[in-house]
Every structure is written in C-alpha cells, then in structure tokens.
Design a protein around this nucleic acid. Structure first.
Lengths: 332, 332
DNA sequence: CCTTTTTTCGTAAACGTTTTAAATTTTGAT
DNA sequence: ATCAAAATTTAAAACGTTTACGAAAAAAGG
C-alpha cells in the first residue's frame, strides 16, 4: 500500500518521468513544478524504493564487511571505521562473520553476489578464497584488510607488519634484552610471516639469535600464549623478553608467567602487537605496537568506494604501526 | 553482462516462467526438465538477482541492527547472536551505529525504510525514536533490545534488570555489607531505573538505606565511575561496597579506588552488571551479574523473523541474569 | 476411443523505478 | 507574427524476476 511515483504522478497530473526527475533534482526540470511535486510527495508520505532503483541503476549502494568474528576485539573498531565512511557516502554495510571458516567465507561471497552488493571488504582467513576472488568468478570490487594479497591487481590496506615486529624487538633490545623470544599464532597469513621477519631482522642487526615459538593451527585465544609459555618453563628456556604476535597472545603469556611466579616486567618483559582496547586498562597496562584499526576500516572503505565509482585503479595502502609504551616491559 | 533467466530460457528452449520454477524447485514442474534447466544454469554461471526478486516478492530478506556503537564491548556478542540466527535463515544484516545520537537514529530509520529492510532490531538511545516507531510512520517490524518499551504491542528482549540490581545487592549483603552504594549512568533508560529499583528493594527488605550516585548525562566511559568515586572520597562518604550499573562503570570505580589506596576487595567490594569480556581477565576478575548477550541477539532475531513471517504477534522476552562470582567482592 | 482429471508449460502482467528518444511548450529574436 | 532554438514534458522501454491464468499435453477412467 506504500505510495509510489505513479500515485504522485496521478495527483500532480504529470508523467512518472517528471516525478522521478523532480525528486532527484534532475536539471532538466522546471523549478516550479519541481517544488510542487516535492510538496505533494511530502504530503503523501512518499518513501522512495531503493530496491526498484537498484534494479534499474544496477547498483545497490550496499557493501559488505566480511570478517572472522566481530567478537574478536580487533574488529569492532575496524567495523566502525568502515561503517562511518560508508554511511557518510550513502552506503549501508552488511556485517558478515565467517567464524574463521573458509567454507563460510565462500558461501557468504556467493550470497553477497546474489544480493548484488557493490563491493566487499574482506579480512581473509583462507588463501583459497583469495584465489576464488582473484579468479574473478566473483565480479565485485574487493579490498582486503589485515593481510597483504599480492596477486595481480589486488587492493589491500594493512599495517607494515614487518616494521611492527621490528619495532617491538628493537624496543626490547634498547631496554637491554638480548634473549628475546617470539610467540606467534597463525602460520599462513602474511601478517604472521612479516612480523616474524621483522623480529628476525632486528635481532640479526644486533647479532642476536632468534627463538620462534609458533602455535600450531590458528587461534586467537589467550590459551595459545598461555600454553606456549608453559612449554618454555617446562623446557627451562624462559627468555628475558617476549614479543607476542598479538595482544591476545600477549595476555595469555602474561597470565601464564604470573601464575608461575614470574613478575612482569621485573622478571620478564612482554610486548604485544595490535593495541586492543583492554590492553589499556591500568591493571593490564600492556606495552604494544599499535595498529590504527579505525583508520584501516575507514581507509579500506574509502578505497572500495573509489573502486566502485571507477575513479581509481588498484591500490595498496600500508599504514604505519606505532609503539605504545606502557608497563609490561622493563630494563634488563 | 551477467547471465539472466532470459538467457537460460533461450538456451533451454523454454519460457522464463519455466526456468524460474525450475530454479526455485517449484512443485509445478517436470523433474527431468528441472534437472536439465538447472544443469544449463550451472554451466552458464547463472547467479540469481536478489534485487529483482526482492522487487516482485516485496521482501528483501535483509534486517538491520541499530545500535549505539559496536565499539562498546557489550554489543559485539549481541551482534554475533543476531547475525548467526539471521544467516541461518537466509537473511543478511546491516550494521548501523548511531553513535548515541538520536538524530542519527532517526536518520538511519528512514534510510532503512527506503531500502525496504524486512525488520529492525534496535537498542534505542532515545525515547523519541521509540515514539517515532510506535507512531508507525515507519511500517516495519521492530524488536527492541536492552530496554523495555512498554507502549502498545511492542516487542523486546531484555534481561530482568530489576532482578539484576537486586541480585547484585543481595550478594553484597550476604557477604555482610550494610553500607552499599549504587553508581549508575544513564538517567532515562528503563534498564537504569529497574536496576536501581532492584537495588533499593533488596536494601529495603533488610531495612538498609540506599545511596544512589547517578552520573549526569549519559556515558559509557570508565571516567563516569572514576569521577563519581572521587566525589565519594572527597565527601568522606565511601561505602564498604558498591554496585555499579554496568561493568564499565565498575572498572572506573576500581581504578579510582585503587589509585586512592583502597584495596579491592579488602577495603571495598565492587560488583558490576553485564559481564563484558574483559571483566574475566584474571587481572581484573570482576564479580558481576551477567547478561546473556549472545542469546539476547539471537532471540531478538528469532522474534523479528517470526514477526516478519507473520507467524507471531508481539512478544516480550525477559531473560534471566546470573551471578558470576570472581574476585572483587569480599566479606565484611 | 472419448471424456475427465491431472501435470506441465507458456503468455503476459506486475513489482517501482530510471532513462532514452521523441514530442510539446516556451523563449527570444527578428 | 514567425521561426529557430532552448527548455520542459511525455511515452515507452528497460532492469530481472515471480506469478496468476489459461492452454496444451499427458495420464487416468470408463
């Protein structure tokens, strides 16, 4: 029963086309009839139908944000950045959680294609879906976040993960540490690899030896850091400092360390990467290398919209990480 | 250039209608031609156009989640709950942040109406938008979360906030406290009022006096709890226990207390409400009355979809809060 | 083999817009 | 008053589906 353009046309005594032009401020229309029509539309309580418009204009002004899990403290800020920029530009954004499952990831992609979203921002969990996208069975602009995707003409916005790993390690060395371990999570993502390489490089420049403890499988749970540290004490190979691949792992390490009588930062220094919100709580006070999460979201939406409007070719953005010194690292 | 039903029809040598029926497993079709058509569609790489379908079927299978800020640690789990249920039932969900602004809230509502979403889940910040909705200028099924909306025929899912306030206070009294204050946030929401009333009632039943310190304006920042506690020490009216309206405020109180030499829980007990994720960190270890956030999201989506399918009238769901005992409350 | 019922399929309209091309009106100058 | 040019409007097609209705074909019953 919603009032339509047809209805307005009847009341105003003009054709559909005129009404459409009036409501869209089309230049080819007499300003006085335009006002009259707008008035009538207002009175009749007209609400334009975006679905119909989408059908003829072949764009929906919808984008999607495809992430592993909004519950992971890294993503809400990213999402906020994306949504802010999208809304400012008239776009709505679908929130899509893949639950770290590549099958879900691909399922969602075909759903989004059916729905004719104009573009997608993906924090990919699987390289398979990257292939799927770049093989362009999907035919929708995509920008990746969180991990570099260096295949042909891909778009992404990431931080310089190498630098992040480097900075964390460098900071620890400046504090006097020479026995520095790295505890990581995933073993496939570029961010994982880059951070490790940054760590290695920093050590190498000071002729120190690397000690990398990666966790099998992919997990963002604290337990990962916790368990790995436990192994270290079992093997009597506890370093004086640890760079954790991310803050959640750092938290796990801290818990394990303190439970086993190690004082942080007196006995052991721990630095994370990411800067998730609860690291800033005074009781946690985690020293970390921060990612500009909000900016990552916002910038990725920016690029995506450019891509959609065709006003830009592929773009790779690498943002700068920055050190946040708090209380979990001490001098050696 | 996407392949359409028309194209398939041509190749298969049948009418549009037949193709449509085949692809939708319509009963009125020969199973063998159905298979043939599906085969062809597959081969041609057909992707149904949900926009066109939405136009004729007058539903979009899209819903929206309208919340103040996904960055607030309360909402990600809720969002996850609604998205999970929605996806399982073929719906996609728009993430809409209002940034605690009622103007944004209403703007978003008209946008969502234009887009013809089938339903909306709202965590309302303003009673004005509730009026706006119930005056049904909007003509879309709505379910509220977080605060009761007791106007005619509204749908909501909340926790029993009265009980939450009551339980928190009761627990403190059981520990021997008799000087118990309440520090709250918002002064308008039903959840705020109910929690206070629960607190009062519990005290009343034990003939104790209430001490309510509400924070002017609305804020979910820690600073609120922090500042209010500071006033207490200034006025030399520090109680032995405090129930905080929510966990974030509780955190602020804890910080202030410890900064001023009060040991938690030895000198002062603090209990929150909500159970946000970082309360569970060992270093924080906040005792709290929990809300089933995921269930709130999931259940609200459930109700909304029922509403959309017309298979149910209005529903008010009140979920049970539950006590999580950790380390911030001690015996007196 | 004819009639009736049941299956299956095709025609055409509908959903609510935008847009192209053509028709009409207005304007401005002579 | 006349005519060309500019401004405004209209008619109709298009976007890609679904669906009501009727027609044809197949199956069933006698």
């Amino acid at each position: 029963m919603a009032v339509t353009i047809k209805d307005i046309a009847k009341v105003a005594g003009v054709s559909y086309a005129t009404v459409s032009r009036a409501l869209n401020d089309h230049p080819e229309i007499n300003v006085i009839t335009k006002e009259k029509i707008k008035e009538i539309a207002q009175q009749m309580g007209y609400t334009p139908n975006a679905v119909a418009r989408g059908l003829v204009k072949k764009n929906t002004e919808m984008i999607a944000l495809l992430i592993p899990d909004i519950t992971n403290p890294f993503y809400p800020e990213v999402a906020r950045g994306v949504e802010d920029y999208a809304r400012e530009n008239g776009y709505c954004v679908f929130l899509c959680n893949t639950n770290w499952d590549e099958e879900n990831e691909q399922k969602y992609l075909t759903i989004l294609k059916e729905r004719r979203v104009d573009g997608i921002i993906i924090a990919p969990v699987s390289t398979d879906t990257i292939d799927y996208v770049s093989d362009s069975k999907l035919d929708i602009p995509v920008v990746y976040i969180g991990s570099r995707v260096d295949c042909n003409k891909s778009n992404y916005v990431v931080i310089d993960d190498f630098k992040a790993g480097y900075m964390a390690t460098e900071y620890l060395m400046k504090l006097g540490h020479s026995n520095i371990a790295f505890i990581g999570g995933h073993d496939k993502s570029t961010s994982h690899i880059d951070r490790i390489n940054g760590y290695k490089q920093a050590l190498k420049e000071n002729r120190l030896e690397a000690d990398i403890n990666s966790i099998k499988g992919y997990s963002f749970k604290k337990e990962s850091g916790y368990g790995t540290f436990l192994k270290m004490v079992k093997n009597r190979k506890v370093p004086t400092a640890i760079v954790a691949e991310n803050d959640i792992i750092a938290l796990g390490i801290m818990e394990a360390a303190e439970k086993h009588g190690y004082d942080v930062p007196k006995d052991i220094s721990i630095i994370g990467i990411d800067d998730i919100e609860f690291g800033s709580l005074p009781k946690i006070n985690l020293t970390t290398v921060a990612q500009p999460k909000f900016d990552i979201g916002r910038k990725s939406a920016d690029i995506l919209l450019d891509l959609i409007s065709g006003s830009a070719d592929s773009k790779q953005i690498i943002l700068e990480p920055f050190l946040i010194v708090r209380g979990t690292c001490g001098k050696y």
